[in-house]
Simulated assay, not measured.
Amino acid sequence: MPTLIPAASRAMAVFEVFAREKRELSNSDMARLLQVAESSTSDLLHTLHSLGYLMRTTRTRRFYPTGRMLETVRQIAENDPLTIAAQEAAEQLGARSDESAFVGVPDPTCVKVVATQPSRLPLRYILDVGARASFHASALGKALLALLPEDEARARLARHALRPLTSHTVLDVDALMAQVAEGRGRGWWESREEGSEGVYGLAVSGWLGDQPVGLSLAGPAERMKKNQEAYLTVLRGVRNALLTDS
């Protein structure tokens, strides 16, 4: 049975403290914030400093993270199977439809966009990688909610007040869950100008290993509706090639 390694947990906690405090910290500061003895904190900070993950400021001799962690994370992200598959999916969706394509995964209270492919058409909808979309007002959000048990989906929606983003935003949880169920029955979900005025979105969802993933096309409402069946064919094709049902 695997066991937790306290030293590893404390090392990660050091970076979480720096992220929260957003300032240089002394050994005593860190010991107080970690609630660990100063002698143990000194050994921990010295180790991270020796490995190049922390620096000491010239004037105060306090500690602060270097860019090594960021570079390490960047290299990991570049070769992350989810990132690679998501970008492949976005590129395929964009190439086959000429609309803006998005791949999203669930965060606790929203959808995180992990890959995009902007439309080549003059009038287009744009979201950057790292952007957040709402569960209640996006096709991606509804598609991902459909992968969850109903009680968990309702809990996601209840974690924060549902805000009206446009005059079309649905704020009633029962009505939203009915939309999610309807989409599950037909295999796709939509957002009819619910997140942005004039923008219509279509989405499908599935699993990449144990990661729930949503695929979406979005653009000007009139163009999206005109080409809806063709776009759904594109979404289903990419989804079936890259994702599974469970």
Rank of each mutant, 00 (worst) to 15 (best):
S246V: 07
D107F: 12
M30F: 10
M177A: 07
L45W: 06
Q87E: 11
L25F: 01
A221G: 08
A133K: 15
S40D: 01
N227Y: 07
R32E: 01
L70P: 10
T72C: 11
Q211A: 13
E91G: 02
D151F: 10
Q75L: 15
G201L: 15
L25P: 00
H160D: 02
P65I: 11
E21L: 11
P6C: 06
S138V: 06
A8D: 09
R223G: 09
S50N: 00
A143M: 07
E194P: 03
M30W: 04
R61S: 08
T244A: 09
A133S: 13
T233N: 10
E150C: 00
Q228I: 07
E16Q: 13
F63H: 06
A131C: 10
V113I: 09
T66H: 13
V114M: 03
P118F: 15
L34N: 00
L202S: 06
V111L: 09
R120F: 06
W188T: 05
D151L: 15
T41G: 00
M1L: 13
S246I: 12
R184G: 10
E99L: 14
K112G: 05
G94A: 03
M177C: 05
R184V: 03
E38Q: 09
Q75C: 09
V129R: 09
V105H: 07
R20T: 01
R10T: 01
F18Q: 00
L121Y: 12
G206M: 13
L34P: 00
A77Q: 11
L127V: 15
T58R: 11
L148A: 08
R159H: 14
S100G: 14
A155S: 06
